[in-house]
Amino acid sequence: MGTRECKHICGESSQGIGEAGRTGEWRSARPVIDHDKCTPARQNKPACFLCWLYCPDAVISKTIPVQINLEYCKGCEICAQVCPTHAITMVNEEEFSS
């Protein structure tokens, strides 16, 4: 099977999630949210969302409760660093593999 079907005559790309693959696999530690500490979950209304604001990879949802897409989270820890209530802790991936 050749590539004629694609019809491109130059390098024309269209969007796709996970262009670099499942970048979650790059991670050595995983952010885990303690919703008892997380402001929007505690107040049950939109608030804070600083982790969402600062996540370089846009893998945190602006929802109640806040959720992290672990398929693509690169484990950079920025969310944990910026969280004012220390609701996010980084847990070594090895602890999930067993």
């Binding site: 099977m1 050749g2 590539t3 079907e5 694609c6 491109h8 005559i9 130059c10 390098g11 024309e12 790309s13 269209s14 969007q15 796709g16 999630i17």
Partner: peptide, 30 residues
């Protein structure tokens, strides 16, 4: 939205719709 002239790999690659697209060499061939 379309992106033109991104980095292109040596070998063909499948796009998000599952279509096998060219590698650099196929674009040159064309």
């Amino acid at each position: 939205p379309r992106n033109y002239n991104l980095v292109t790999l040596a070998n063909p690659r499948v796009n998000a719709e599952g279509v096998l697209c060219h590698g650099y060499m196929e674009i040159r061939y064309l």
